[in-house]
């Protein structure tokens, strides 16, 4: 299955921009990153069906001219899923904002504590 150049470049840009945003500290940017990578994946799924064609109605359109309907059905399902999860993610970000008063991703406190204990133990040994 071949995909045209414009779609390939677009897909590359969307994936790159999306993953860049996903790695940011602000939760809102992460949500936008999720949305953009979601678009990229759905567009890719759509493009995987090959070049566009006639609507796939048996008996109305010759079979050779039909577009492949399966990836479209898959993309539709995936769009619904990503849409639903985006709303959930937004609600969660809102709750984090209400509870914490900001929308930054924070460090893992327990990791820090383990690390501090380790440094203290090293000092005791050397000193």
């Amino acid at each position: 299955m071949s995909i045209d150049l414009v779609t390939i470049v677009l897909l590359g840009l969307l994936y790159a921009a999306g993953f860049y945003l996903l790695m940011q500290r602000s939760l809102m940017q992460i949500v936008l990153g999720f949305v953009i990578v979601g678009h990229a994946a759905n567009l890719f799924l759509q493009a995987a069906g090959g070049p566009p064609g006639e609507p796939p109605f048996l008996g109305v359109v010759p079979e050779s001219a039909m577009a492949d309907p399966l990836p479209q059905a898959l993309a539709l399902t995936a769009v619904v899923i990503t849409f639903g999860l985006t709303t959930f993610l937004l609600a969660l970000v809102y709750r984090a904002w209400v509870l914490l008063g900001h929308d930054e991703v924070q460090d893992d406190l327990e990791d820090r504590r383990v690390r501090r204990a380790e440094i203290a133990a090293e000092r005791e040994e050397s000193g």
């Binding site: 994946a41 759905n42 799924l45 493009a47 995987a48």
Partner: peptide
């Protein structure tokens, strides 16, 4: 969610 999007990408690659 990120791993799910990668999953979706993988499905697209497999279908293509």
């Amino acid at each position: 969610l990120t791993s799910s999007l990668l999953f979706l990408t993988m499905v697209a690659v497999v279908y293509a």
